[in-house]
């Protein structure tokens, strides 16, 4: 099963109905993508498939054949969203953070607060009450 993972062509050997989440974490060792619920409710496993955020716990491997998958590791360590999540304390326990950042990537520049809330409606955070996350995204997307 061939697909593009963080810009590189990769072949996966996991069974075709494996969850993309497990393939990323176990076959490719990309553990930045987290599992919080296993049913598409918490968004901790959010990755981009062909640029669109999806819950990788709900995507069977077979469905990313020939697609492009981007995970938090594909962002490197110098992305404005990462910096502002740090500066604004958008990350507390950090388990939702990679998913939050991946979901926020889809926002256009200079989003309104409502835009941000809607974009993050599929990502649960239990630590922050979301407010610091809004501040982080607002700053990162206004640079």
């Amino acid at each position: 099963m061939r697909f593009t993972l963080n810009g590189e062509t990769r072949d996966a050997s996991s069974p075709p109905m494996s969850r993309l989440l497990d393939v990323l974490r176990e076959e490719f060792g990309l553990t930045g993508t987290k599992e919080g619920c296993g049913e598409g409710e918490c968004g901790a496993c959010t990755v981009l498939v062909d640029g669109a955020p999806v819950c990788s716990c709900l995507v069977p491997l077979v469905q990313v054949e020939a697609a492009s998958v981007q995970t938090i590791e594909g962002l490197g360590d110098d992305h404005p969203l990462q910096h502002e999540f740090m500066n604004e304390v958008g990350a507390q326990c950090g388990i939702c953070t990679p998913g939050m950042i991946m979901a926020a990537l889809s926002l256009d520049e200079h989003p309104t607060l409502d835009d941000i809330k809607v974009a993050l409606a599929g990502n649960l955070c239990r630590c922050t009450g979301y407010a610091a996350i809004y501040r982080a995204i607002m700053k990162a997307k206004s640079q």
Binding site: G32, T33, Q82
Partner: peptide, 21 residues
């Protein structure tokens, strides 16, 4: 002062290691 979190960058890059990792 609101200094940078010690664990901020690890969490924002997905490099922080949790038990299941």
């Amino acid at each position: 002062a609101s200094v940078p979190r010690k664990d901020g960058i690890g969490k924002a890059t997905g490099q922080a290691r949790y038990a299941d990792d």
